[in-house]
Design a binder for these strands. Sequence first.
DNA 1: CATCAGGGCCCTG
DNA 2: CAGGGCCCTGAT
Length: 332
Amino acid sequence: MTINSFFLYPKSPFHFDGTFHKPSHFPNKLPLDDWQPGKYWQLMRVGEKLFGLRIEDRGDVYNPKLKVTAYFNFDNLRDDRLKDGKTKLPQSELELIKKEIIYRYELDQDLSDFIKLTKKNKRFTPVFNRWLGMRNSCEHNLYELLIISIVLQNATVHRSVQMLDNLLVKYGDQTEFDHKKFYAIWRPENLKYVSEQKLRNLKIGYRAKFIKRLTEDFIDKKVDEFSLRKMTKESARNELMKLYGVGPETSRILLFEALHHYDAFDHIAPWQQKIYSQLFYNQPLVSANKIKKDIIKHYGRYSMLAVHYIWEDIFWRRKNEKIDWLEKEIRL
DNA sequence: CATCAGGGCCCTG
DNA sequence: CAGGGCCCTGAT
């Protein structure tokens, strides 16, 4: 294994912990990443290779600076193609990794318009101030996030965790760096010859068919993450909705998290509606249309981003404090 | 023991 | 456009 480190300088302001840890995401047993204040670890796929990343906070909100340590050439990977035997990482690959980190964690995003907007509506100003500089980041590539979205469909959190873990044990890449063990979601190619029945054996139910067909679409380049990244929200949504097993909620997740469209607020799932109703109205249930109208009125093209701040804020609070109405709606 | 809904989506009529 | 069915699981 070899190691390479470098620095990255996010656009100011930047909130390290808010960006690298999202407490609303479900914690699976087989870790895809790890976080402690000021430090973050994950396995990241760039091209066909897998890298271990340790990202450390070496600055502050107004002078952000990240130290990135990249580990590669693991000895213990199942797939030999993922290591190339070279000990030094070529400059071109290093640039690719940097670009990918910058994209997934939105390090270059200019949030000044959004920040101005959040000052207009006083009600949530404390929340926006608390997380000033937080990004809508996504540790995963599009395929990986799609897999996670599929196991989330029509299941309780507990079962989603079980489904993902079953899949990871069988098909994920497992490796260790910086004295920590991590899993990474497989490349589509690694699932190519796995039958639907084999997948069903992992208790993922009818989702097996979705994963099978979606994986084929990625292998056949019917979906290309990099061209989707360049599209408008509407065209990207159209493309995603064509995929078998991708509906309004899954495409919203992908548009917002993986493709970073801040206005991807077209769809509100019933369980989210209940949480939004409490957060925004202190009421058990407000109509989804009203919620949508009100949020868009206040936050316009930043509607989903604004909701993300308020959403994550309550889940941060939940770490130290019991919030009864929230516990009820999360349904582990 | 049976029944049911769940952090959606597909398919049919 | 509405509504039934889908895999499986834990709750009732």
